[in-house]
């Protein structure tokens, strides 16, 4: 009956061996220490940011790329024993929510004075816990080929999307799953008032072919001709246009809302000093220039950063005075989403 302990020992040995194999490779870090970054934008943008920061400071950066919502879920789940230091990028909503729940750290960067007003306002409204790093306006992309086929005149406004000829031709994400679509919901409510806004959304519902899960999916669908109109952030449409898609990006004439891509320091960060170094550096023009090089055409938050020429010009877009404090709070969000679910989503067409 010696079998048991032998196999047990074997099992223990192999477990140890595999554990060592999995832990190996993380050698001693450089003297400058290290930093863990949760990156909420695209890989092409995250990677050069990390490389540039490492080159400049000698700090070893471990970067994980996830969507904004996933990072929020992870930061929340890890809050008893935080593993990340900085949460860089991604739409502002989850950052605001994390700030509200005290998952992130207050920090006042010396670079704050160099930033555009909207970026500072994000910092103020989050009580110093999140700062704006880029911004992008909401709008829709029109597949010009499909539009010509249908013989519909040029689209310019939110109201134009109610054209009966566009039945089943508009695509937008489900605000329950996508921050982009929630931004649109809040935008419409702020432009038209709550009652009229919901009337508009109910009318639009007849033209919506699909509420997608991901916020950027309508942009891709419009570029492929799967839908004539896709509602998403303008820079998402621009990326498709730069790629050669027959799409025109439209900033609606009634005015439109916008997102503020944000950055937060995670509460309980193990490398707090390095996190602050990243934070300050990420607000400088050199760091923010990397966005355009990575084909991300959002508007950077530092006034001195050159705005990429492909970017939708925020000065020409009628931006509403988006109340992030009100519409970013969980109570208001819950109420609006419940109302949208009840009154819009399940309407017969």
């Amino acid at each position: 009956m010696h079998v048991t302990s032998k196999s047990a020992r074997l099992a223990a040995l192999s477990a140890v061996a595999s554990a060592t194999a999995l832990l190996a490779g993380s050698g001693p870090a450089a003297a400058q220490g290290q930093l863990t970054v949760y990156c909420g934008v695209q890989e092409e943008w995250c990677r050069p940011m990390v490389d540039a920061f490492e080159k400049q400071t000698g700090i070893k950066v471990s970067m994980t790329r996830k969507s904004s919502g996933e990072i929020y879920a992870q930061v929340k789940a890890e809050s008893a024993n935080p593993k990340g230091d900085v949460w860089w990028g991604g739409t502002g909503d989850p950052h605001m929510q994390a700030a509200e729940e005290g998952l992130t750290e207050e920090y006042k960067s010396p670079k704050l004075s160099e930033l555009n007003d909207w970026a500072v306002r994000q910092w103020e409204q989050s009580k110093g816990r999140a700062v704006g790093i880029y911004s992008g306006a909401l709008g829709y992309g029109v597949n010009t080929k499909m539009l010509a086929q249908k013989g519909i005149p040029e689209l310019k406004c939110w109201a134009d999307l109610l054209n009966p000829k566009l039945k089943d031709e508009v695509q937008v994400a489900d605000p329950n799953s996508s921050g982009t679509a929630y931004t649109m919901l809040a935008t419409i409510v702020q432009i038209m008032g709550e009652d009229k806004g919901f009337d508009y959304l109910k009318a639009l519902h007849k033209n919506v072919n699909q509420y997608t899960k991901s916020g950027a999916a309508p942009a891709k669908a419009a570029s492929l001709g799967e839908t004539t109109v896709g509602i998403a952030f303008l820079h998402d449409h621009v990326t498709m246009i730069v790629d050669g898609a027959p799409v025109k990006a439209v900033a609606p004439c009634e005015g439109t809302g916008y997102e503020i891509g944000s950055m937060s320091i995670i509460k309980g960060a193990r490398n707090l000093d390095n996190a602050k170094k990243w934070y300050d550096w990420a607000l400088t023009p050199e760091a923010q220039k990397l966005g355009a090089a990575a084909k991300s055409f959002q508007v950077p938050s530092n006034k001195a950063t050159p705005v990429p020429k492909e970017s939708p010009n925020l000065a020409e877009i009628k931006l509403i005075n988006f109340d992030f404090a009100k519409y970013g709070s969980s109570a208001e969000r819950k109420r609006l989403l419940a109302k949208w679910d009840a009154e819009v989503k399940n309407l017969p067409k």
Binding site: L22, G25, T36, Q42, R65, K66, S67, S214, A216, M240
Partner: peptide, 23 residues
Amino acid sequence: VIFLVSAQYNMATTYIVGRVEAG
């Protein structure tokens, strides 16, 4: 795994999902 990957142990699928998200 989307929540379990770390900088050192990133998985192919999460990378692919990122690419799909980016179109």
